[in-house]
């Protein structure tokens, strides 16, 4: 048992494993390169930065599957509706909260949809091959 443990521990481990995981998964992104809009980076409005502290900006994560359009449209539509609902004096706090709750629900759904696309992609034979052979001709990714 011990031998197999050691073996399996030693296989997938490199320093980069953790570094990559941290970049891909940690809550470490303040600046995100938009997936749809192409090249430009989104910079936070200075006023919106919290606490006025160090505010160090990090640019990470440019790739990854985009949200399916049917969900993406719903997210942006729900945000518009929530803003309208909350600005409307005729509507109360409850309606405003419910509208923003719908935004949260759809945003979570969008995130889950991206995750499952990522998983589907990970099972793709070409993706699997490219994970091990990132430099081969068919695996190269070019910036435009």
């Amino acid at each position: 048992m011990a031998a197999s443990t050691v073996a399996s521990l030693s296989v997938p481990v490199t320093t980069t494993t953790f570094a990559a995981a941290a970049a891909a998964g940690g809550a470490d992104v303040l600046i995100v390169v938009p997936r749809r809009a192409g090249a430009g980076r989104v910079w936070f409005p200075a006023a919106a930065r919290r606490g006025g502290g160090s505010g160090r900006l990090v640019a990470v994560r440019s790739s990854g599957p985009a949200t399916p359009p049917e969900i993406s449209d719903k997210v942006s539509e729900s945000i518009k509706q929530a803003e309208e609902t909350c600005a409307d004096d005729q509507k109360g706090d409850a309606e405003c909260a419910a509208a923003w709750d719908e935004v949260e629900e759809l945003s979570a759904t969008a995130s889950h949809a991206r995750d499952s696309l990522k998983e589907t992609n990970a099972n793709d034979p070409l993706e699997k091959y490219c994970k091990d052979n990132p430099d081969s001709e068919e695996c190269r990714i070019y910036d435009n």
Binding site: L30, V32, V75, E77, C86, E104
Partner: peptide, 23 residues
């Protein structure tokens, strides 16, 4: 939530904050 939503079309720092606060 910034990490999750910022790249989503329509979202902004304000919308993320507003959603958390309203809920």
């Amino acid at each position: 939530k910034i990490q999750r939503d910022m790249a989503e079309r329509g979202h902004s720092l304000e919308s993320i904050k507003a959603s958390i606060e309203a809920r």
